[in-house]
Nucleic acid binder design. Structure first.
Lengths: 221, 221
DNA sequence: AATATAATTTAGGTATACCTAAATATAAAT
DNA sequence: ATTTATATTTAGGTATACCTAAATTATATT
């Protein structure tokens, strides 16, 4: 059995790896809220367990077995998030925090039961894909909402869960995954966007738009 | 925040206190699967935190605040056991093991949602009472099934969850809480009992019967 | 009451996972 | 190419929660 700490490291390494590409000691330390020196120590341990490859001063990469475990933890996390929302009505801005704890205590048996209850779902409440039991994950290629130009429509794919209050805010505005939107206008100098959701115009700051990923971007007819 | 270990100690201290009365270092060590010397160390810590009173060589007792926390952990444990059974169909011989892990990661919010989902239940799948949110627990006074004499009827109150395989066995025989039974005969020399459950005669060893508590014992008319 | 047995505590040690401060290596700026 | 700044690692230290072996206290037996 791997410790909760190790599971957390692997999860975050996977996350950074698939976002920024390179995983550095500092980026890990930042996301985990741990001192860089402590991260170095843990990377040695992960390396000794063949979960990552680590050359001094050169960052880390997940090995095959490290990836497998990372995806298991991510699967747990996202299944739990969706389960809490669907089965217990927990609002989407609180599921992440709970899942952070639950992901480490979920047995395979309960995982399967939750998966079945939810009808073998493929994405969590924020639109992030749920890896399959055998460690396959479908990463859609998305665009950043902040970069979409006026006169285009799109579908919200994913909303970052890094800030609960931002999720609450976006929920109030109706920015949920799978929602159709039209970008009406975009103000210059990193200014706000006018976005049409269900025939209502919403004003969204560009900073916030950075945390929303969209797909199916097309010019409006 | 208290550690998982501390929560486990308090829970087990409560359990022994309400069963055997006196809580000794050895009894704790036994139930927790920890060396007695280690228990001594932890008891010092619990004492420093005013969760127990501990005089050297004299065992421990929960303080008021220790009792409060113990009951919270027990409430978590038992709510989760029942939830796993009701919501996810987990068989009663497996819920204990899962709850041992989950009880430490349950937030007040989720606790309340589960409690509501279950309709504010008062006992878990094994018949143990669930403490209320404000720390009240109704301990019924039960008799041990092994001590009931022939010609008496009774109602199963509680079945010990200490051994999963025993629970599975008792489940197959139909020994669930709230079930009406009649003791038809009892063999001498610690011999087996003939018990009538739903008009079927079951033979139950006296050793196993020690782990079943009953209420409403009455002479059969 | 003295002795043997059992329970408990003390002493010293381990693994995990973190910390700060200092040293060293890499990358960026001049 | 040298200096400066940043990133990373090493060194030494802390808290938690466990361990074994030895010492001590309490309890039971004779």
């Amino acid at each position: 059995m791997l410790s909760q700490s190790i599971e957390d490291y692997l999860k975050v390494i996977y996350d950074i790896q698939s976002t920024d590409g390179k995983v550095t000691t500092t980026s890990l330390a930042g996301k985990l809220g741990i001192a860089p020196a402590s991260v170095t120590g843990m990377l040695k341990k992960l390396s000794a367990k063949k979960l990552v490859t680590h050359k001094k001063y050169q960052g880390v990469q997940l090995t095959e077995s490290g990836t497998k475990i990372a995806l298991e933890v991510i699967r747990h996390h996202r299944l739990i998030e969706l389960y809490l929302k669907e089965a217990l009505g927990v609002p989407w801005d609180r599921v992440h925090e709970e899942a952070e704890k639950w992901e480490h205590v979920l047995s395979e048996d309960i995982e399967d039961r939750i998966d079945k209850f939810l009808g073998h779902p493929t994405s969590d409440p924020h639109g992030s894909p749920i890896p399959s039991r055998d460690g396959k994950i479908i990463e859609r290629d998305c665009s950043c909402l902040a970069d979409i130009e006026p006169g285009h429509k799109a579908v919200i794919a994913e909303v970052s869960d890094h800030d609960a209050s931002m999720l609450r805010y976006l929920g109030e505005l109706g920015f949920y995954p799978e929602t159709n939107i039209v970008i009406d206008s975009v103000e210059p100098f990193n200014g706000p966007m006018k976005i049409n959701i269900k025939n209502k115009i919403k004003i969204l700051g560009r900073e916030v738009a950075r945390y929303i990923a969209v797909t199916d971007v097309k010019k409006v007819a």
